[in-house]
Design a protein around this nucleic acid. Sequence first.
DNA 1: TATATAAATAACAACGTTGTTAAAAATGGT
DNA 2: ACCATTTTTAACAACGTTGTTATTTATATA
Lengths: 328, 328
Amino acid sequence: MNITIKDIATLAGVSYSTVSKALNGSPLVKEDTKRKIVEIAKEMGYEPNIAAQRLVSKNTKIIGLIWPTIERTVLATLVTKISDEIANTSYSMVLSVDPIQKAMDTFKKFQVDGIILFEENVNIDINPNSTPLIAYGVSRQRNYQYPIIDANHEQAMYEAVHYLYGLGHRNITYIGDISPIDPFQMEKYEGFKKAMDKFGLAGDEYIIDTRGLDWYNGYVAATKLLELNSLPTAIVGGSYDISGGIIRCLKENNVSIPEDISVISYDNIPQMANMEIPLNCIGVSVEALASEIVHSIINLVETENLETQYKKMTPTLIERSSCAYART
Amino acid sequence: MNITIKDIATLAGVSYSTVSKALNGSPLVKEDTKRKIVEIAKEMGYEPNIAAQRLVSKNTKIIGLIWPTIERTVLATLVTKISDEIANTSYSMVLSVDPIQKAMDTFKKFQVDGIILFEENVNIDINPNSTPLIAYGVSRQRNYQYPIIDANHEQAMYEAVHYLYGLGHRNITYIGDISPIDPFQMEKYEGFKKAMDKFGLAGDEYIIDTRGLDWYNGYVAATKLLELNSLPTAIVGGSYDISGGIIRCLKENNVSIPEDISVISYDNIPQMANMEIPLNCIGVSVEALASEIVHSIINLVETENLETQYKKMTPTLIERSSCAYART
DNA sequence: TATATAAATAACAACGTTGTTAAAAATGGT
DNA sequence: ACCATTTTTAACAACGTTGTTATTTATATA
């Protein structure tokens, strides 16, 4: 049997409503008694019954995160960061790995205050006027029923090229997935192409389609690249895993990074620093993303205003040791 | 404002306590009225307020899963399966990716009925007489304060060798991680050695230490193997990822599976069927593991009996197309 | 010292359920 | 038609909180 405010009340010789107020720091109770009550509560190891709190206070102080598929490292890191971020607020987070509709049902039952949805490029129609919801990901339809937060993939790749150009590179290869069904990847590709155009470096031969986002896809693509008779001076990797494969392949073939080839990767996650060569990277940092997502949903929950409809976040570039000036 | 049993009551012209009973299928209310009430409830889209239910019924019907680090594919699959399994019961699952102690605190606040802990080889001392808890993983200390469920790694590897022996293989190589600090890996290694001893095939030269569990580790180890002048007729791979690297390497070097070399892998997960060659594998299936874990924790929650202290689950072998009779 | 006012505390309703007890309605046997 | 059951329904307390209202106690003012 757990202890309640009533137990504390009898021990402190006050009424339980006074205990409630004291524990909530109400100015209606004398500082003295407040202190005493708080002390007794602590010493008894009191934990408020959240079911009771919720019953009376209408909101659950829970944010539900729907994460239908447990996937790439980037998403896992993002989940962790979101969890941390929420832990700093008065809210808690619960995670569901169920399919979207089922997770929505569960969360409706749980009466969570808000939902964060990792959208998997799936167009699922969601009961619009129910729980506050924001999505992370890309929306294909133009009229959003809920706010969406997204990284600006296109800008990221543009900036990557811009950065390499500034280092004197004129011979840049993009190694990434160019799947037309994945809007994320297409945006990256577009960004790269636009930049190459802009800086007068365009040409299809500078692009290798990995046909996948995994480590091995990068490895294979890099192998293919090395078979060419003229190598680029810089590579833009399309994802964390792809870049992992690329640098492994280069290393095995005694191509030095960054002396022979500079490498910059998409995905701004801390793990980039722990690779065999600490990688320069560009992307919205998971911290920034997590922070934006959490603040948005809480703001949405507490104010019910949803002016911001589609927020594309600006990427940042992190310099480490995988890029250098182009050799003259 | 959500609808409550009182709303249903007024609409049905009965008392709210009757509604409660009807909705819970109590035999105390006439079938006729029961039907009517249920129908009205459905049509109004009634959802019970779980906070209220919990408040009165003492237990929360929530199982907490502590998953401190988001990791290998195998664990991710296991989480999904556990989630599915729990969804089939009257319980719900919430997931915390926080560090163990913090997650424990959160769950205490949530007043979850039970906790599943993915133990990370960390010896954390847990307040023993609090929430029912079972762990998945290996315990180093001999006196468990809580039940532990674990796959029998040793037996799995023993059976793998046994199986290959039955197919006529006498020249078997183990490619796996032999890290003495990882009890899981050591158990696998021991199982392999014991079987080789038993069948008179022993010898250290049949073992390659991958020094890691990743795809690339397997790839490198296989490359090393192919440099030997005499190849084995069968390989036992130490993990899903390792085996992925192995078969890719063999394929690249035009070694046919299973014509030239048979391959069997540890880790019994569905993904094994989707590899370039559907792999024979051995291990406790995630379904079995999930089922056992879920039933154990629910049993523990509902009966408070914890007779079973340390359960090592028996692995099963799945035959696909990566093993064949040894050539004579 | 009495009285108005302010401060501190207590009492109590409410939140939406469930389970127990009390009341009403239906049924059966004489 | 009357009483004893049995079936069905209603009434109500309880769960542990919070917030509002009522009461007590302390303080200041005349």
